[in-house]
Design a protein around this nucleic acid. Structure first.
Length: 772
DNA sequence: GAGCACTGC
């Protein structure tokens, strides 16, 4: 390895890898993030910095920032843009008037890059160079170069729309198209590319630099009023890609690719030179199955005859996914013993969030699990979909970070052409926009439909968000933010949950809701292992917790878990004993503290609502939940089948993990936190309610016509028009309850006929199997 | 009678 290569090797983790976070950082690491314990980053000398591709462009780059209020910098990973550009601007005196703020989509990146730059600038972290991420603010008044997550900057915009503390804003990794980065981009364009609004609240102009790797920079430039594009050459090793024969367009619906992936990985192992393998699959279950298969097959290899490279004497198979225990994840980074080839079978987590050294071969399944919002049924659905071509290129690129590599795609070129889109659909076009729209409204952006989105979400997504905000009393019928809405926007939670929390706070019972809100905004806390025996044990422990709760209510169960663990002497041991994710619960504790602080701050405001309530505690708790979840009400139709009352009338089942699953009582009305679509449509985290509690709220679900909302959303409405609209609305509200009754009836009929159809189907099947 | 990719405030 020549000097240049060694040097290059050191540089290669400038962008995303969680390198350099020392172990003291551990407690602050996000759930699911892993550090690489084997890589310590030496401080980079100024000589090294001069070797970066970006160095040769230094003066031109500074000049370009000086001359333009908007600038696009395009450069591949390894060009040094993330670490160097802020330093250049600092040296050139750009922080004279304000800070340089650099956003990242991921917290690990924000933290590690800040550490790295502090080293390079020879200052302690938090002085000139600092970072801010949720739960972790490493800045001081003397911080002038500030790395942060995009979400953090969005929060800052809410407090100070003119961003008066900043001289330069750099949006990094724009090509990843994270929801927050897209919104920030639109905001910066709207406010700072218009001379009338750009200077409002500021004494000097703001510089905006947008950094992107592979995105179509032409499109980006047009979006930013034809601003100039500055291109920096990158340095990556070549990766040769081979297509397979296994997955073609007709395999879109099936999931038979696990076997093929295993076959290809084994083939690489036996026919290719030494070097580690990284396999991309979609989820935990698949990964475990693939690992089992691989292990089974690898045991049969005779290393005297079967392997092409005689230095290879074994295969080490390692699974990798986000919810895996952290110590197990750390194994991934250990170099394999001499003569052993490492094969990591991972989810998409290995595509951007962490980097594994020594990967020379990629096996790409061509699929990814993606959360998509379906506005037709108003649900978020987690589904397996083909990756985009750009994503496939990124996966391949993981083999070319330290030397030339090879990528084996199990799908055909036909699949590539016909099934894989050029780019991944941006997050903003496949997310529920309720929280985002509220943020925009609070920033005074009334016309949320004609907001300059880099990629426009479908109009019905926006309308659906407006409708929900109206239902939660966050906006009024004119689309203006209410006092309640202004309170709601402060919380980093789903608006429905915030609504329930604020109701509880106004009744003085926030202690019941705060832990629940926290628990619902972290990953699933109940562990259910794969082995049947352990599964039984876990189920029993969880049932004991239900018994301790004293009522069949999944929300209350969350409260029990939270409180029991918190009051335990040894919380982590308590979790282990009760099959609860300690890591997830720990982050729930942090979230609860943060929510409590926000609430306290707001309660000091004079306009914080105060109400009274007489009734018992369990009812109080559930009624608070109803104010936030009346959009998620379901009524029992037949047996264990419920139907939603949101107008879609979807048939749903209580998920077997719910404490209500085995319940055979008379409960007929429930609210639920979320929906999961697998073999059936399941509702999870369920709570029984009384119809009385939602009776007055339900008509609201049918009162608003989204298309009329759209006209209100578009423009300021005159008083005259508003009056007309309000008269119409009043009539509709009356109709609301009629619609409800009709819906109930229709749902009921649908359910019965549906159930009957399935009964007949089963009967037919039974007869057929008998005949056989 | 069962399975949640990954981020983020």
């Amino acid at each position: 390895m020549c000097f240049d290569e060694i040097f290059f090797h050191l540089l290669e983790n400038d962008d995303q890898s969680p390198v350099g976070a020392d172990s003291a950082q551990d407690s602050r690491m996000p759930a699911g993030a892993v550090q690489n314990p084997n890589r310590t980053e030496p401080p980079q000398s100024s000589m090294d910095a001069k070797k970066l591709p970006i160095y040769h462009q230094k003066n031109k780059l500074i000049q370009a920032v000086r001359e333009n209020s908007f600038l696009i910098v395009s450069g591949e990973t390894g060009s040094g843009k993330t670490t160097q550009l802020p330093q250049y601007l600092y040296e050139a005196g750009f922080c004279k008037d304000g800070k340089i703020g650099i956003t990242q989509p991921r917290r690990v990146a924000a933290i590690t890059v800040a550490q790295r730059v502090a080293q390079e600038m020879h200052c302690s972290l938090g002085l000139e160079v600092g970072y801010q991420v949720r739960f972790d603010d490493f800045t001081t008044p003397s911080t002038v170069v500030k790395y942060m997550t995009d979400g953090c900057l969005l929060r800052e915009v809410l407090a100070d729309p003119a961003l008066s503390a900043y001289g330069v804003i750099i949006l990094d990794e724009v090509h990843e198209r994270s929801l927050n980065t897209d919104i920030l981009l639109g905001l910066l364009k709207k406010v700072f590319s218009n001379p009338h609004t750009a200077s409002k609240g500021r004494s000097f102009p703001l510089k905006v630099v947008v950094m992107s790797a592979t995105m179509e920079t032409d499109k980006l430039s047009v979006f930013l009023n034809n601003c100039p594009v500055f291109t920096i050459p990158g340095r990556v090793y070549p990766v040769t890609c081979k297509f397979g024969q296994a997955v073609g367009p007709k395999d879109l619906e099936s999931t038979a690719y696990v076997k093929e992936v295993v076959k290809v990985a084994l083939n690489v192992h036996t026919t290719e030179m030494a070097g580690d393998i990284l396999v991309f699959l979609t989820g935990q279950v698949e990964i475990e199955r693939a690992c089992d298969l691989l292990f089974e097959k690898a045991e049969c290899i005779d290393y005297r005859y079967d392997v092409y490279d005689r230095t290879v004497e074994g295969l080490l198979i390692l699974p990798l996914y986000g919810s895996m225990p952290t110590d197990q994840q750390k194994q991934i980074f250990q170099p394999p013993p001499p003569g052993i080839r490492k094969c990591v079978v991972a989810t998409n987590i290995a595509a951007t969030s962490l980097t594994i050294d020594g990967i020379k071969y990629i096996v790409d399944s061509g699929f990814v699990k993606q959360l998509n919002h379906n506005s037709r049924v108003g649900l978020d659905v987690l589904e397996v979909v083909p990756i985009s071509k750009s994503e496939a290129r990124q996966r391949a690129g993981r083999a070319g970070r330290t030397s030339a590599g090879k990528c084996f795609r199990i799908y055909t070129t036909e699949f590539w052409e016909k099934c894989m889109p050029e780019y991944t659909v941006p997050e903003i076009q496949r997310s529920s926009l309720t929280a985002v729209i509220l943020t925009l409204k609070c920033l005074g952006i009334h016309d949320v439909i004609r907001f300059p989105y880099l990629a426009c979400p479908e109009e019905r997504f926006i309308l659906e968000a407006l409708k929900q905000l109206y239902q939660f009393d966050a906006i009024d019928r004119r689309g203006k933010v209410t006092k309640l809405g202004e309170l709601m926007v402060e919380f980093p939670l789903h608006p429905g949950l915030t609504r329930a929390l604020l109701k509880a706070a106004s009744l003085g019972c926030q202690d019941l809701l705060l832990p629940v809100a926290a628990m619902l905004s972290v990953e699933n806390i109940f562990i259910r292992p794969g082995q049947p025996e352990k599964q039984k044990e876990a189920d029993q422990k969880h049932k004991a917790l239900v018994a301790k709760t004293g009522s069949m209510n999944d929300f209350a169960l969350l409260l029990t878990v939270f409180q029991s663990c918190k009051s335990s002497d040894r919380p982590s041991a308590w979790c282990k004993d009760n099959w609860i994710h300690w890591r997830a619960l720990k982050s729930a504790f942090s979230v609860e503290t943060q929510l409590r602080e926000i609430l306290l701050r707001l309660q000091q405001r004079r306009d914080f609502p105060v109400e009274t309530f007489d009734g018992n505690k369990s009812e109080l708790f559930r009624q608070c939940l109803c104010t936030g979840y009346f959009t998620n009400v379901a009524r029992r139709s037949v047996g264990k089948v419920f139907c939603t009352m949101d107008g879609h009338g979807s048939m749903v089942h209580i998920h077997p993990s719910s404490s209500l699953f085995e319940q055979e009582t008379e409960l007929n009305w429930v609210i639920f936190h979320d929906v999961m679509v697998t073999s059936r449509v399941y509702i999870r985290t369920v709570c029984p309610i009384r119809y009385d509690w939602v009776k007055d709220l339900l008509p609201k679900l049918h009162e608003v016509d989204v298309y009329e909302l759209s006209s209100v959303a578009r423009e300021e409405v005159t008083d005259d028009e508003m009056k007309k609209w309000e008269t119409k609305e009043a009539a509709k509200r009356q109709q609301g309850s009629k619609v409800m009754k009709k819906l109930e009836k229709r749902n009921n009929e649908a359910t019965v006929s549906d159930a009957r159809a399935r009964y007949l189907e089963r009967k037919k099947q039974r007869q057929q199997s008998k005949a056989l």
